[in-house]
Amino acid sequence: MRVAASVSQGRGPALENATRVAVVASLGATTMLFASLVSAYLVRRSFADWRPSPALWPLGLLAFALIASGGVEIAARDAGARRRLGFQALALASGLYLAGALGVIGSVASAEGGLQMPFNAFVALLLGVHVVHAIVGGGFAIWVLRVEGSGPSDHGLWLARLVTHFLTALLCAIVFLLFGLQ
């Protein structure tokens, strides 16, 4: 659309700046969204009937997210074949993350107690909202990276890195809060 078109036509640093401002601001809004969800979670887990359940899947999800982030990092540093490899890692890991997260949500919903169990409900809530953001953020990253001739622009790489790293950090925080807090 307009941003990418004008960036690649060199329509000026002002518009690039504007895009950065907008992306950083939307990450700020996303942070507030998760801060709200997490504070609800922290309140709820302080109630007497709270029963967490341990699980291994968070490690799998984290691994995929870290690989996805690493893929962008490689792509940003290198060019040529290594860059292509980085993008492939990004695409594959993101796909696995999405499938895995949806699987987890399905399994807590059908587990004993289902979503009526507050812990399960928060797992589904936090992961579900993260998945939505991962889809939007991933789509955005793909869009700014669309290779035209000489490869993605520095500007595009900067944005894609920012967004994917942010989403990965967010997932780390969610997993820590759900499973690491005592």
Binding site: M32, A40, Q116, A124
Partner: peptide, 29 residues
């Protein structure tokens, strides 16, 4: 206003998602 909206509305978004889940997905937030 833009900053306030960007940082404050997400909290209603969060609450609304939870309310929708309470209404339709069997949660009890």
């Amino acid at each position: 206003v833009a900053i306030l909206g960007l940082l404050a509305f997400p909290s209603l978004t969060a609450a609304s998602i939870m309310l929708l889940l309470d209404r339709h997905a069997g949660t009890s937030f």
